[in-house]
Write a protein that binds this DNA or RNA. Structure first.
Lengths: 231, 231
DNA sequence: GCAAAAGTGTTCTTACTACACCCATGG
DNA sequence: CCATGGGTGTAGTAAGAACACTTTTGC
C-alpha cells in the first residue's frame, strides 16, 4: 500500500472537546454547565464543548471553547479522557476528548457566560446531562481528587491571596470529608510552598486571618529536594 | 442553527489508536514495537497502531489492533492519552488515542508478531520512534508506575502462577529501584490478595520457591474493608 | 462582655526502614 | 559439602491521627 491510499482509505470522524469547568465559591465546589442550543437534545443540560477544527490541536480547541464561555485564557487545564463509543452522541458519531479546567470563579466574565446560557451549579445541584456528560463529570471528580493530592492544583481554584481556612475548606470539598484544623495547618505549612503575607482578611472573622500566596519558586525548591507535595 | 448543519459544518479527522504494549520476561520489562510498512517513514520503528473505523469505539479499535499483532484478546488495557497536535503525523493530520496494554509475554502468538515485523525490546534498547511515539512511551511508563502503585496490575504481566521473587523483580523493574526482600514480602503478604499454592518453582533455585496466584476475590474483600492496595 | 473565627502542642499509634542469618536442596 | 536462592524477625524512626483551650476584636 502506498502512503496516499493508506491515509485516504481510512474513515474520518467528527471530533469534539468537552470541558468540565470547576470553580470554588462561597466555600463550595461548583461546575459551569450550560443549556444546549441545537438539536438533538436542545434545551437539555450539557457541558461546554465544541468541534475540533482543521488547524487546531485538541488542546487548543479546548482552550478556545473555554475562552468563548468564560473570557479567560491561560488557565489550568488537563486532558481527562477520550470518549470514543460509537453511539455516545445521538446526533452523529462524535469522538469527544474531555478536559477539566480549574478557574478562579471571581475572574470569569459573568455576562459572557450568561450570554451562552452557562450557569455555575454546586455538585449536588447538577441535573441530568446529555449523552455521557454525567460520566465525564464523575471521572473528572475522581481525577481532580487524585491530582489534588499530589500536585498543588488547589491554588488554581482560589484567589491569588487566600487564608488557610479557605484552603482547608477547599480540600474538604474536594475530598468530601472534614480535615482537622491543626493537622492541616501543620502539614501544609511544613511543605513550605506558600508565602505568608502581612495582610489579614477580616471578611469572615473579627480577629482576621493571615493571607497566603502560593509561591511557584518554593514549590520548585521542594521538588528539587526530592520531596513530594502531598496533602 | 439546526442539527443537520451543526454536525455537517464541522470538519472530520482521521483518528488512530496506538498501543504501548508492555511485557515482562527474563526479569526485564519489554515493549512490543514494529517496523512501519507504509510511507512516510516506512521502515522506521513505530508503535503498533491503526485507524479507528466507523463502526467501532476507540477502545474496540485498540483491542482489535492489539489482537492483530499478538493474537491475544481479553487483555488488560488502559487509555493513556489523546495526542491531538496538528502536525504530529507527517503524512496527514491524524489524532491519535494511545492505550497501554499489559500482556503475559509467554502467551502471545510469536509467529504472528514476527509476521507483522514486531519485536520485543527492553526499555534501554528502544530506538528512536516515528512521530510522537517516543513521548507516548515515556508517558505510558509514568502512567504504569503510578497505576502499579495503587492497583494490582503487576499481576497482568506475570504468568498465572509466580514466585514472590518474580513479583519483586517486576516491581523493581517498574520502579527502577531495588526493594528490600523482607519488607516487600511483609507488605505484599499483609495485603492478603494472593493465594499461596502448594507447588514450588524449582527453575531458579534448588530449594524451590512457593508459587502464588493473584486472587481477585481477596482483592475485592480488601477493597470492601476500605483498604487500598499499595506497594 | 460576648460571639465567632484564628491560632497553637502533645501524646499515641501506626507504618516504614534498615539490617543479617539460617534453610533446603541439587549438583 | 558447598553454592544458590528462599525464607524469616526486630529495633529504631517518622508520619499521621486524635484531641481542647487561648487569643483577638467588632459589635
Amino acid at each position: 500500500m502506498n502512503a496516499a491510499s493508506f491515509y485516504a482509505k481510512a474513515p474520518k470522524h467528527l471530533v469534539a472537546v468537552d470541558c468540565i469547568i470547576f470553580g470554588f465559591d462561597e466555600g463550595r465546589l461548583k461546575l459551569l454547565i450550560m443549556q444546549r442550543k441545537v438539536a438533538p437534545m436542545a434545551g437539555e443540560w450539557s457541558l461546554v464543548g465544541g468541534f475540533v477544527q482543521e488547524d487546531e490541536s485538541t488542546d487548543e480547541a479546548a482552550a478556545r471553547v473555554l475562552e468563548l464561555t468564560t473570557g479567560l485564557d491561560d488557565i489550568y487545564m488537563n486532558q481527562l479522557h477520550c470518549y470514543g463509543n460509537v453511539n455516545r452522541d445521538t446526533g452523529a458519531r462524535v469522538i469527544s476528548v474531555a478536559y477539566y479546567a480549574l478557574i478562579r470563579i471571581k475572574n470569569h466574565d459573568k455576562p459572557l457566560a450568561r450570554e451562552h446560557g452557562a450557569h455555575w451549579l454546586e455538585l449536588h445541584e447538577i441535573p441530568e446531562l446529555i449523552f455521557d456528560h454525567g460520566k465525564m463529570i464523575e471521572d473528572a471528580l475522581a481525577a481532580l481528587r487524585n491530582n489534588a493530592q499530589f500536585h498543588p492544583i488547589g491554588f488554581e481554584l482560589l484567589p491569588e491571596k487566600f487564608t488557610l481556612s479557605q484552603l482547608r475548606s477547599l480540600y474538604e470539598e474536594i475530598y468530601r470529608k472534614t480535615l482537622d484544623k491543626r493537622n492541616f495547618r501543620k502539614k501544609i505549612l511544613s511543605l513550605d510552598v506558600m508565602e505568608k503575607l502581612e495582610e489579614k482578611d477580616k471578611t469572615s472573622s473579627k480577629k482576621g486571618a493571615h493571607l497566603y500566596r502560593f509561591d511557584p519558586e518554593k514549590y520548585e525548591a521542594l521538588k528539587r529536594k526530592g520531596l513530594v507535595f502531598e496533602i
